[in-house]
Design a protein around this nucleic acid. Sequence first.
DNA 1: TTTCATACTTACCAAAATGTTAGTACTATA
DNA 2: TATAGTACTAACATTTTGGTAAGTATGAAA
Lengths: 115, 115
Amino acid sequence: MKSKALKITARCPIRTTTDLLSGKWKLLILFQLAPQSLRPSELKRVIPDISEKMLIQELKTLCDSGMVIRKNFGEVPPRVEYELTSIGRKIMPLIAEMRNFAIEYENEIISNTKS
Amino acid sequence: MKSKALKITARCPIRTTTDLLSGKWKLLILFQLAPQSLRPSELKRVIPDISEKMLIQELKTLCDSGMVIRKNFGEVPPRVEYELTSIGRKIMPLIAEMRNFAIEYENEIISNTKS
DNA sequence: TTTCATACTTACCAAAATGTTAGTACTATA
DNA sequence: TATAGTACTAACATTTTGGTAAGTATGAAA
């Protein structure tokens, strides 16, 4: 039991990814942006329980980490759109796995409840 | 833009999974338990920066959610072991995806830094 | 007999995450 | 002229999370 190589200390991929996606909202936002770019007001509509502050705050950190781009149309009243970048699009397999796991988990729970 | 079916409100797979795995430590613990069952003291050794309280607390919630089993050997001084359940083992593809994403993300960052 | 190790529990505290409310500037619409 | 919509920002409050430090019971080793 001296698995030195497996020791988790500083930079490990699990932490890199959780740092990028942590919090209540980032994955939901990314998921909504996958099929098409959306304006903040449209995102608010499809994620009704997010507060405006959190929406904009999380969009900003997603921009900062390179997952999303903000497109400003320079119009008035203001019009902007948020769009996934190429790396942003690369969390989709991860989301697919999360969905997959959720389904397996719920099946397991149901079959345990029955017995 | 009336994607009613995609609206995220109550129970959605992304939330199911993040709820189960949320927090700083759960994924790291599950990852360490994948190759073999471990005693708390061994887990502490491979995840040095976790506090004892968090380790035990998270092990308990992982047990409660059915991801992990606690085996008590009934010895004194106390000896217990934590082991993944069958659903617990099913987060491994998810962790693999996280690792995969982390690598792609870091590559992207490097290539953007160079240009 | 003091110390160590085990697997915990408890009380308390600090920091981080999230939420609430109000306000900005501008225009279009009622 | 009042109201609503847009994309924000800022101040503040609350909730959640994580960390520290101490204590418990037991027996074995020094």
